[in-house]
Amino acid sequence: MNIVVCVKQVPDTATERKLSSKDNTLDRDAADGVINELCEYAVEEALKIKEAHGGEVTVLTMGPAKATDTIRKALAMGADKAVHLVDDALHGSDALGTSHALAQTLKKIGFDLVILGSESTDARTGVLAAMLAERLGTPQLTLARKVDIDGSAISIERVTDYGYDKVTATLPAVVSVVEKINEPRYPSFKGIMAAKKKPVQTFGVADAEIDTAQVGLASSWSEVTEFAVAPPRAAGTIVKDEGDGGAKAAEFLASKKFI
């Protein structure tokens, strides 16, 4: 089974994240880049499926040169190889542009199963997997908290507002995972060493037959026109419970007319 995991590098949520005042896009130099948390769950699920059914796991990342750190992390967890889509023409792509670039690359490298995180911590659009399914014409098996594969049949439990849906389809398919699905492994020392020797293929827009009229900031379907740092929340009142904490909280709620 040929499994491709889409992995994104995002700014560390523990550091201050910024937009660039130059072009209103994410300032990728302002913060350390780390692997998007939910992408670790996607990698873990790919490895589990490979362990159960055989095959190969390819990491696919679109991002600047420094995204190689994130690729190495996924390889250290156990993925076999990687494709790094990197080209200045891709800077500032929105979700539509990113999905076009990833879909073109996926067509080029081939796949039985594509696995994504359900959301990234920076863009938080949560639309990439649905967009890939639309572009590739493959079943959309998103928001999965459980994946089962039996030959070419695949089924998932899709998290919903009221519980979950059982959904079935036939491979090839696009899956996105939520954090309930597994517990991502830590790379072992051996894994980290092995990752250094694993093949990472670099693709530019031409290699993946990406239409440059559909990617990059200038071709974006949407744009940020203005942004401002939100005013900080006013410091609140913190009291220590002296046996009357509940009563004090009630007074506060009453002062705000909640009770």
Partner: peptide
């Protein structure tokens, strides 16, 4: 965005 840290105005251009 960014957990409430930044307010953004955006529009669809296509």
């Amino acid at each position: 965005i960014f957990g409430g840290g930044v307010n953004v105005r955006s529009r669809v251009s296509r």
